[in-house]
Design a protein around this nucleic acid. Structure first.
Lengths: 212, 212
DNA sequence: ATGTTGTCAAGACAGTATGTCTGGATTCTC
DNA sequence: GAGAATCCAGACATACTGTCTTGACAACAT
């Protein structure tokens, strides 16, 4: 039978889990900032850097994957918030709005690049992380698909395969951020925003012209 | 001193390495076809499936990474050949040419998806594989950048950040193939080609129209 | 103050992988 | 058929994972 003398302290444990999560997030960012890969980080190294023992780590987390999924949820919440700005203003057809939204997404991506890098890394071989990441990205694709459909209904966006185009644009932003931010300094983020804005703008909003 | 009685048989060894490489490639595709991840494949499992012992594997290959880089070189040669078709015909500004090129790239990508998936997977945490992959992709970006520059010089392509746009389009194709081909059947490759053709066409060749 | 409870670090443990290195068997080559 | 190359089976040291136990310590209720 369950304990009678003391109520289960799952809430307390949950709180502790989150505290440790924050500590370990900082530890992860520190270690990855030194050029280490998340895969290369052993649980021992990670726990030590976070100020706890390996045994304690396993009290609160199943494994590195669960920890990373915890990190990811916070980061994705922030990133999705930035993306929201885009699709809230998408119907306005204002290129400046679009550019500002893309700029915001790039900035958030840069802030969280350590965790995002770890997620992408682990998604490549861990199916649970992969599913989480794909779920998030699918959500973004859906939102853009909705924009395209609204635009087509209103006659402001040309006919095109909705879902596939939304997917192409979404993954373009994701992968370009991922590959570019790793090596280029923040000072070039403007050019990056320009070119992605241009591609999206021309794809979605430019009037079709007769082809030669 | 070096052996006198028998000349070093490095050529022979090299040949054997390639034979084994082919065997192991087939083994890899077989195992990954069963849903296994390249990371999950132990050297032991891989060698057994390829008909050799683990010890023999280490005679011919440093580790799984070197083997994968060997695979990758063949696959990339084939893929680059397909991409060549695009930039050979790019100046012609024929949308049908563009669509045919993209279709060809998708088909080759689908053929080699096991190895490509393994490469992308391992590039995420192995810096040598990462460098190989980035090198290949950089080559593609360069080629597209050259197309854009030629087009701009000829006045057929609008002013835009050359390198960043080339990068965005390249990674769009890469990532969309990667994410889409994993889950959708071959029958949908046509729609995929349509939408990517549309994005590239509109980005590069469409006449600018006055913005609202 | 005293005993109960939750928390933690430390260490032991089995299981699995890696990469290296034997010895002995087999196959190739001259 | 002798000598060399090639292979396999197995042993080895190392490293990491995930589980478990132990003992120390602090919070807390009575």
């Amino acid at each position: 039978m369950p304990s009678v003398t003391r109520k289960p302290q799952t809430a307390r444990k949950q709180q502790r889990r989150e505290t440790l999560g924050r500590q370990l997030l900082e530890a992860t960012e520190r270690l990855m900032g030194e050029g280490l890969t998340f895969t290369e980080l052993s649980v021992d190294r990670l726990a030590s850097e976070g100020g706890i023992s390996r045994a304690t780590f396993y009290v609160y987390f199943e494994d590195k994957g669960q920890l990373l999924r915890l990190f990811a949820q916070h980061v994705f919440a922030d990133l999705t918030e930035a993306a929201q700005r885009w699709w809230n203003s998408a119907d306005a057809r204002d290129p400046e709005d679009l550019r500002a939204s893309i700029t915001e997404i790039i900035a958030r991506y840069r802030d969280h690049r350590s965790v995002l890098y770890a997620v992408i890394e682990m998604a490549a071989y861990d199916s649970e992380v992969d599913e989480l990441y794909r779920g998030i990205m699918d959500g973004l694709v859906d939102a853009i698909a909705a924009i395209i459909e609204r635009g087509q209904a209103a006659g402001t966006i040309a006919p095109m395969p909705v879902r596939a185009t939304a997917s192409a644009l979404t993954w373009m932003v994701e992968r370009t951020c991922h590959q570019t931010l790793r090596f280029t300094p923040e000072s070039e983020d403007g050019a990056l925003a320009d070119s992605m804005t241009e591609v999206i703008w021309r794809t979605l909003y430019l009037e079709p012209a007769p082809r030669p």
